[in-house]
Structures are given as structure tokens and as C-alpha cells.
Amino acid sequence: MSPTSPGLYLVEVALPVPLDQTFTYRHAVAADDERGIAVGDLVRVPFGRRKVLGLVIAVRFSAQDVRELDGFRLKNVQQVLGEEYRILGDRRRLADWLATYYVLPLGMVLPLFHPPRPGTKGRAARSNPAEYPDVDAAGIQLTAAQQKIVTEATAVLERRAFEPMLLHGVTGSGKTEVYLTVIGEAVARGRDALFLLPEIALTPQTLARIRARFGDQAAAVHSGLSAGQRCRVHEAAARGEIKVVVGPRSALFAPLRDVGVIIVDEEHETSYKQDETPRPWSCWAAPRRIWRACTTRCGGGSAWPNCPNASGERCRRWKSWTCGGCLSPRASARS
């Protein structure tokens, strides 16, 4: 029976608690409820005296009005959040990998995949006048070396293959322009892009430059935004209204529909490593999100590549490119 059909269902839910098990709840689907409940849904449930968010792992129909299971009284699911908060596909595979790699219950990595207080309504952030110099994409001419990198990345996008790339270039060598050109190729093919930055402070200037290219299709997400603003970006990305998400390590978990490229700028920075449990390191987690979908390119860029990725390149895990020289004098662009 479909989980959208009227009736009583027993729902297995993974919760953000340090217990390697799921918890069973009851959920009654009314005759006029078109939403129902399904695997991957984010739900709000009672747990002790608290109300917590959990991930639906399994759903089974119950022909009887079951109120107890193994001697424990079953509680009801209090809320099924909107479809924008479902965790499926590459995000679910990434959650499974994080839980396995860091030896944690699946529910413990769940908070990474949704904003605080999901479902909170928020208004669009008030737009401020541009505080950074505009860079006209039409006036920029890539050097031969930079164009070669873009051509290689575009070929990977065409094949929908996975290929990590390490881009090495000094400040001012045009790394950011290479990133934006590759993102443009992904968006032109209907794909999405993630642009990760090591610090929130770098987000406004990078977002201004990206919005000059992609307009309202680009948005930032970080802890400096209100819960409502973060929910608004999350929901818009899940609906396909946002194609490029910019931000620090938390942006990696944005619910973009079809990620074509992930940029990890200044990938040598230690701030990509989270201090709190589950302590994911974005430089490792980013390739895992797209490698398991096998449909995209992951790029890391730095003037000082870190040792793990540099050695990975020598082991042929990463293809290494050097972004030498500067952009054509027709236009200048910051790295």
C-alpha cells in the first residue's frame, strides 16, 4: 500500500541521539492528506520531554490500531515537513558515508542537512548597493592555460563523469574566473553548482561577483543568516529556483537537485574542518557527495595546496592544473 493512502503506518525514524538504532512511531494518513509520509521525509517527533527532528528510514502499513510495540507505548509523529526537506539521492548517500566514516548513528549527522528550525518563514534579505568592483564577464579573456582548464572541465560535464581537480595558482592568477566560467558551463547545461569558501567574511564579495553573472539564481547560506533566511534559501534550492549556492562548509549540504560542480576555494584552510561532532572535513566530504552520484566534477583551488590532496593528485586521484599567468589586460579579475 502506498504511504499516501489513508490508514495507519508504523514509521522507523533515525534521531540525532548517540544510539545506534531507529525509533518506531505511529502516523495516521487521513483521506484528504495528499502528502502522506515517505522514506527520506524529515519529521518532528516527541522524544522524552523534547521534540526533535528525525529522518524517516522505513514506512510500513499497519492493518490494526497498534499502540504498543515490544512493551513500549508508541507515540505519534507530530509533523511531516515539506518535500523541500526530504533527504534523498546524493545527500542521503553523503549522510550514510559520513555516518560510516565517523562511526556515528545516522541521526547524528542529520543536523548538517537542514537549517535550524526548518519550516521557519523568512523574508528575502534586503539587497544593499554593490560594495565591490563589478567584473564584466564579457570583457574578460582567459589565457590559453586557463582556457585549457575550462575545456577539460566542460568535457567532464558533457560526459557526466566524476573527476576531482586540484587547481594551483598564486593570488591574482585568475583562479576565481576559471571557477565562474566552469560554473557557467554547468548552469548552461541545466546543472547546479556549489562554491565553498573557508570563511563567512569572504562570502559577500564572492556572492556579489557570482550574482553579477547569475543574478537571482545564486544565493548564500551561512550561520550569519537568520533561521528564516536560511530556510528560504534551502527551500528555493530544493525547488530548483537557485542554481548556485555560495557559503562556508555548511553550504556543502544544500539540497541542490543536480550538482554539476563543487568548488572548494582555498582548500588548504583548516576552517573547512568542523570542530563539533560529526566533525566533517569539507575537502573530503565534497568529493564523496558527487563521487557516489558519479555525475560531476569537484575542484579544489589554492595557492598552497594541502598535503593530503597534493599527494592524492600524485596517486592519480586528483588531476592537477597550474593556473599560471594573469587574465588578459582587457579586464582584471581578482583571484
Rank of each mutant, 00 (worst) to 15 (best):
Met1Pro: 05
Ser2His: 10
Thr4Phe: 07
Thr4Val: 15
Pro6Lys: 09
Pro6His: 08
Gly7Met: 02
Gly7Gln: 05
Tyr9Cys: 02
Glu12Tyr: 05
Ala14Tyr: 09
Leu19Val: 04
His27Asn: 12
His27Ile: 01
Ala31Val: 05
Glu34Gln: 05
Glu34Arg: 06
Gly36Leu: 10
Ile37Asp: 00
Ala38Asp: 00
Ala38Met: 03
Val39Phe: 02
Asp41Ile: 01
Val43Asp: 02
Val43Arg: 05
Val45Cys: 07
Val52Cys: 01
Leu53Ala: 06
Leu53Gln: 02
Val59Tyr: 00
Ala63Thr: 05
Glu68Ile: 12
Gly71His: 00
Lys75Gln: 03
Asn76Thr: 10
Val77Asn: 01
Glu84Pro: 00
Ala95Thr: 04
Trp97Gln: 07
Tyr102Ala: 12
Val103Pro: 02
Leu104Tyr: 09
Gly107Ile: 08
Met108Gln: 14
Leu110Tyr: 01
Pro111Val: 01
Pro111Glu: 02
Pro111Thr: 03
Phe113Gly: 03
Pro115Ser: 10
Pro116His: 03
Arg117Gly: 04
Thr120Phe: 05
Lys121Ala: 13
Arg126Asp: 15
Ser127Lys: 15
Ala130Leu: 14
Glu131Asp: 11
Asp134Lys: 15
Leu142Ala: 13
Leu142Thr: 08
Thr143Lys: 11
Thr143Trp: 06
Gln147Tyr: 04
Lys148Leu: 12
Ala153Asn: 10
Ala155His: 11
Ala155Glu: 14
Leu157Ser: 10
Arg160Asp: 01
Phe162Met: 13
Met165Ile: 12
Met165Phe: 10
Met165Asp: 07
Leu166Val: 05
Leu167Trp: 01
Leu167Val: 03
Lys175Asn: 10
Thr176Lys: 00
Val182Arg: 00
Val187Met: 00
Ala188Leu: 10
Arg189Ser: 09
Gly190Ala: 15
Phe195Val: 03
Leu197Met: 14
Pro198Arg: 13
Thr203Ala: 01
Thr206Asp: 01
Ile210Cys: 01
Ile210Arg: 00
Phe214His: 04
Gly215Ile: 03
Gly215Glu: 05
Asp216Val: 02
Ala218Trp: 00
Ala220Lys: 04
Ser223Leu: 07
Gly224Gln: 06
Leu225Met: 07
Arg230His: 03
Arg230Val: 04
Val233Asn: 01
His234Trp: 09
Glu235Trp: 02
Ala236Glu: 07
Ala236Cys: 01
Glu241Tyr: 02
Lys243Asp: 15
Val244Trp: 04
Val244Asn: 03
Gly247His: 02
Arg249Ala: 06
Val259Pro: 10
Val259Trp: 08
Gly260Phe: 13
Gly260Cys: 13
Gly260Lys: 13
Ile262Trp: 05
Val264Leu: 07
Glu269Gln: 11
Thr270Met: 11
Thr277Val: 13
Pro280Asp: 09
Trp281Ala: 15
Cys283Thr: 13
Pro287Ala: 09
Arg288Asn: 10
Arg288Thr: 08
Arg289Val: 09
Ile290Lys: 07
Ile290Glu: 13
Ala293His: 10
Thr295Arg: 14
Thr295Glu: 14
Thr296Gln: 14
Gly299Ser: 12
Gly300Cys: 13
Gly300Asn: 04
Ser302His: 11
Trp304Cys: 14
Ala310Tyr: 15
Ser311Leu: 15
Ser311Cys: 12
Arg314Tyr: 11
Cys315Trp: 08
Cys315Pro: 07
Arg316Tyr: 15
Arg316Cys: 15
Arg317Ser: 09
Trp318Gln: 02
Trp321Gly: 09
Trp321Leu: 10
Thr322Ser: 15
Thr322Leu: 12
Ser328Tyr: 06
Ser328Gly: 06
Arg330Trp: 10
Ala331Met: 14
Ser335Asn: 07
